[in-house]
Every structure is written in structure tokens, then in C-alpha cells.
């Protein structure tokens, strides 16, 4: 059967059963939207985690009232360590301004005195340092005079890693659930469509149609359902994401720093192809079952 005839017959089937197919597409689109949202959230967490871990940052909070000379001496000492790539001094006032920039209600907090915010030395480490090296460095730095406390962000990283790990498993589970849902919805649609078009199928068999001729349009319809549902899901997610991006990024910047990302063109094409394949596979399996 040539491709043109195949697509023409599939489109005819879609026109004849458009209500059935539209309801199936919207059911699938909701499932794909959940999956796409989960994948997008996981991808952003992974990007943030990777960005942070690559940055390899430590914060040394200085003693209150530490003199400028003592701070400079400490900075000189630290710049001689091979593990440290760059040092940035944050004064009390700079710390206050940074806090106010990230705060939701900056106006109400503007009166806070700068002394409430400790000055610090932000240490940017060399990339690809081993965890043991960072641990040893942190132990040494914690004993230096003039250092009030040290923030390694370790517990945060551990929590983030655990969260990402759970997110990965959750996304895999959700993918399986969505696949089952796609097979179920496409299967039910095909079954109903086969029942409604039983006369057509009977006639085709009587005039000598091969099974592939009968199945072909149904498989194309399944592929179309999957691809259309995936497209609707991506477009809906994009509308929500870009519509609320400033609010989302504000929250992310406050807690994690950095900005979120949407899917790239490759990922979008991959998602559409994945949807189409799921639809096609679902219809193929259903036809095997119901078109005996």
C-alpha cells in the first residue's frame, strides 16, 4: 500500500471518528503534560545541582569586628592554597543588599542594620575536587583565627541529591504509568473504532485486503494520536512556563540561585517522537488483540 493511500485512509478514519479520537487525544495530552512537567522539573534540578557542584563553593563567615588588615591577611593566606580558584569578600553591607535583592518584600526589610549580616569570604574551589579533599580543606579552614563559622552546603547537596534520585525514580515510574495509560486509551479507542468500522473491515477482507492493509491506517491513527497529544502537552507546558517564568525564577533564585530552563528543540522533537511511538505501539498491540 502506498503512503498516500495509507494517510488518506487514516485521515478518513479520523474524520469519521473525530469525537472519539479528540477525546482520546485530550486524555493522552493530560498524561503527557504530567510526564513533561516531571521531566522538566527533574532536568532543572539536575542542572542546578550540577552547576553548584561544579562551582565547588565554601563560605567562611568572619568574626564580628574583624579588622580590614586581618581580613586582608586571611585573604592572602587563602589565595596561596592550591584548592582555591577565586576569593570574593562580601562585606556586611553587601550581604545585606544581596539579601534584600532576593527578598520578596524588600521594602519592609530595608531598615535592617548591616551588622546583622555577617561579612564573609566566598571561596570558589578548583573544579573536580574530590569530596575528601573538600572535607580536609574545610576542617583546616575552620580552625583559622578570624573565622566564625564555615558553610560547606554539604547537607544541602545531600538533600538535593536525594531529592533528584527520588525524582528520577518517580519520573521512571510516571513514564511507565503514562505508557500504560497510552496503551489503555489507544487500545480502547482502537477497539471502539474497530467495532464501529466492522462493516468496512469485513468488506476489505472480502475484496482481498491483506491484514497489513487493514491495520495500516489504525497504526497511523495511533501514531497521530500520540504525536498530537505530546504536542498539546508541550505547548500547554510552554504556555504555563513562559507565562509564569518570572515568578518561577524568582523562587528558584531565592532558594537555589540561577535560573530555570525549558526544553531545547532536540528534547521537544524527542518528546514528540516518543509520543508518536507510544501511540503506534499501543495501536499495534491493540490490533493484535482485537483484530484476530
Amino acid at each position: 500500500m502506498n503512503l498516500r493511500t495509507l494517510i488518506t485512509r487514516a485521515m478518513r478514519g479520523f474524520r469519521e471518528e473525530r469525537r472519539l479520537y479528540l477525546s482520546a487525544i485530550f486524555s493522552l495530552a493530560i498524561a503527557f503534560l504530567c510526564l513533561a512537567s516531571a521531566i522538566l522539573a527533574l532536568r532543572n534540578f539536575e542542572t542546578l545541582s550540577s552547576r553548584w557542584s561544579e562551582a565547588g563553593k565554601l563560605s567562611l563567615y568572619l568574626d564580628e569586628g574583624l579588622s580590614v588588615e586581618a581580613t586582608a591577611e586571611l585573604e592572602l593566606l587563602l589565595s596561596g592554597l592550591r584548592e582555591i580558584r577565586r576569593i570574593e569578600h562580601i562585606s556586611n553591607e553587601e550581604a545585606r543588599l544581596e539579601f534584600l535583592a532576593g527578598a520578596v518584600d524588600g521594602a519592609a526589610l530595608r531598615e535592617l542594620p548591616a551588622e546583622l549580616f555577617p561579612s564573609s569570604l566566598e571561596l570558589y574551589l578548583e573544579p573536580n575536587l574530590a569530596a575528601a579533599d573538600i572535607e580536609a580543606l574545610a576542617t583546616r579552614l575552620g580552625t583559622l583565627s578570624g573565622v566564625a563559622s564555615l558553610e560547606r552546603y554539604q547537607s544541602f547537596f545531600e538533600r538535593l541529591d536525594r531529592m533528584i534520585g527520588a525524582g528520577r525514580w518517580g519520573t521512571i515510574g510516571l513514564s511507565l504509568l503514562v505508557a500504560l495509560l497510552v496503551f489503555g486509551v489507544v487500545g480502547s479507542t482502537i477497539r471502539l473504532s474497530l467495532a464501529r468500522r466492522s462493516r468496512e473491515i469485513e468488506v476489505m477482507k472480502l475484496v482481498g485486503a491483506q491484514p497489513s492493509f487493514i491495520r495500516g491506517p489504525f497504526i497511523v491513527e495511533g501514531v497521530f494520536q500520540g504525536a498530537a497529544a505530546a504536542l498539546i502537552a508541550i505547548v500547554t507546558l510552554a504556555v504555563f512556563y513562559f507565562g509564569f517564568r518570572s515568578e518561577i525564577d524568582l523562587g528558584v533564585r531565592l532558594f537555589f540561585g540561577g535560573e530555570t530552563l525549558f526544553f531545547g528543540p532536540g528534547a521537544i522533537v524527542g518528546f514528540l517522537i516518543g509520543g508518536a511511538l507510544m501511540g503506534g505501539l499501543g495501536s499495534t498491540l491493540s490490533l493484535r488483540r482485537y483484530l484476530a
Binding site: 502506498n2 498516500r4 493511500t5 476489505m204 475484496v207 482481498g208 485486503a209
Partner: peptide, 11 residues
Amino acid sequence: AISLEVMDYSP
């Protein structure tokens, strides 16, 4: 036409 379509004749 369905009788001919199953035999893959040209449109």
C-alpha cells in the same frame, strides 16, 4: 475503489 486500492493500483 476499495477493490483496487487493496491491490495497490495508482490513484
